[in-house]
């Protein structure tokens, strides 16, 4: 359990790093100031659904968003699989650990 999670974290980190080489460089420069500014002043909230609050100082970075989805979904599939492998044997059909 722990092992594959660690491996997974490592792999994803690698993938994300490869994918976002250029963006990460830009982000690294913008990142520190961005986070500090954000802590101080927040924009007035938009109440209209769908309207953009702003373009965001940090441009791009979609590969990180995708990486987060990949990690989550892979995790869910693998954990569900591990539950299925460990399902109690000899139970009446329908109540077993099938998910």
């Amino acid at each position: 359990m722990a092992l594959w999670l660690l491996q997974l974290a490592g792999d994803v980190a690698q993938v994300a790093a490869d994918a976002g080489v250029q963006a990460a460089q830009a982000a690294a420069d913008a990142g520190t100031t961005a986070a500090q500014d954000a802590a101080q002043a927040l924009p007035p909230p938009s109440s209209t659904p769908g309207q953009m609050v702003g373009r965001g100082r940090l441009v791009g970075g979609w590969e990180y968003v995708w990486a987060s989805y990949i990690v989550t979904w892979t995790g869910i599939v693998l954990y569900a699989l591990s539950l299925w492998v460990r399902r109690p044997k000899g139970e009446a059909p329908g109540t077993g650990g099938r998910s």
């Binding site: 961005a34 940090l58 968003v65």
Partner: peptide
């Protein structure tokens, strides 16, 4: 919507 400071991330 994307966030003001961090954008899509």
């Amino acid at each position: 919507p994307p966030e003001r400071e961090m954008g899509e991330v």
